[in-house]
């Protein structure tokens, strides 16, 4: 029983992480892939924060009469990671917008098909020029 309550937080983290992972590898839509990465990212945050928690401790703000504080170091790391995360997400979304402009689609299988078509067309052109003279 203690094993289950003690490790439950890690299992939640693993489950969320795998949901994000599944979203990234199974969906073709680029926006959905970015959302999947976000889920993955938040699961890592939860992992760090849950490691820093000590039973019976309070938030790491110094006050009289409090002996036990939770570990402040992971909080610092995650605090900056969240803001950096949203900045990089914005960068990813901007890339998506550019891809939409260039290919007219944000589904990666369609984009791949378009690129293959282009390559084939170029090959045909090259062969045609060699054959004609």
């Amino acid at each position: 029983m203690e094993l289950i309550t003690g490790l439950f937080n890690y299992w939640v983290v693993v489950f969320l992480m795998m949901i994000g992972f599944y979203m990234v590898i199974s969906h073709h839509n680029l926006v959905k892939k970015i959302v999947g990465l976000n889920i993955f990212q938040v699961s890592v945050f939860v992992f760090y924060i849950s490691m820093s928690k000590i039973k019976g401790a309070t938030a790491p703000i110094l006050a009289d009469g409090i002996e036990v504080y939770s570990n402040p170091l992971p909080h610092v790391l995650i605090l900056t990671a969240i803001v950096v995360g949203v900045a990089t997400t914005a960068l990813g979304l901007a890339l998506t917008v550019r891809i939409k402009d260039a290919f007219g689609s944000i589904e990666d299988d369609e984009i791949e098909a378009m690129e293959i078509e282009e390559c084939v067309a170029e090959d045909v052109d090259a062969n045609g020029k060699e054959a004609s003279p």
């Binding site: 938030a59 703000i61 605090l79 900056t80 969240i82 803001v83």
Partner: peptide, 12 residues
């Protein structure tokens, strides 16, 4: 410095 908060949150 005294409570939760700081530059990152305030900026957002």
């Amino acid at each position: 410095d005294f409570g939760p908060g700081g530059g990152f949150q305030a900026g957002v």
